[in-house]
Design a protein around this nucleic acid. Sequence first.
DNA 1: GTCGCAACGGCCAGTAGTTC
DNA 2: GAACTACTGGCCGTTGCGAC
Length: 310
Amino acid sequence: MDQRLMLRVVIDNDDIRKLTLNERPDSIKELKTQLKDKLLLQYDFKLQYEDPDFNNALCNLTCMTDLPERATLKVIPLVLLELTPLSSPTEDSDCSRTDTEILSIAGSPRSLRTQWPEFFDIPNFSVDVEYRLREANLLFMKDRLPMTLSRDMKHDILQKLAESMYSFKAYPDDDDFSSVAKALISKHPSLTEPGPQPGWFGWKNSLKFKMANFRTKLRKSGCDDVKINGGKRSKSNPEGESSSKNIKRPKRGEANYLPNLPAGHDERTLENARMLVVEELKKKIPNATQVSKMMDQTFPLRRREIVTKE
DNA sequence: GTCGCAACGGCCAGTAGTTC
DNA sequence: GAACTACTGGCCGTTGCGAC
């Protein structure tokens, strides 16, 4: 087996470096030491990697065997993490997949959503669905025959798309739905729907329903991000609050964006971090990078204050 | 029969445009 | 500027359907 490691190391948004290690390090500690030496990093950090099992979403690197031969690594400075010891397992001491914690939708920190992409990248579906889509696409190219979708297939497609959309926005707008539907038809022409409406129109509609049902599910599982807009007065919940009560109403098309606190942190640790920002800003020359990072990490706390305390 | 899901309608509240 | 109206968007409850 080739022991070489080819890495794309993301240090900052504008500092991404390529690095080749001739031997795969035995431990994450050793990997970090090599990264520190070769990239001249003078601070402690943790590592996240793009996990191909989850459509290249970032996961904490807790076990060297998780790392593919060609991998993208993200360096996360340990500014906040030093404030409180995390309950996560020691690196290398346990490969028992506790990193799945950050993958759970309800508990994941959605504070740092990336911007909605200009061209939405349709995720890969299950192997079975991908295979059937490939066959159907060939048939469509040949005979212009649209695919007949089974219930399961449609569910699989909508579910993947909803998860993918949610990683950018909990409340996509009309244009966002259109862009995803168009991208879907563009990648899988066999999914084009017949009729007078454009072939993607039905998918846009289905995506809207799916996203609404998806948010309901997340709300039930306790995801703050969407929970804040739920629990309203209804026939079965006559005592519930009116939707405008006690929360700062969003502007048109804007949700009460309330991200969950980052994994391993509570209001106290984030408040400590906020105080650190205050102290840093008192300095004659504040460390802008550090301040910016801490501002990002304390964003859920500040947002919580705005939304829940009006 | 039960469960999960897509789809739908009703309701409510905010926004924007129009009229006076 | 206030009042009114149409429109939009989100939540909730329900329905119909298929799978088990």
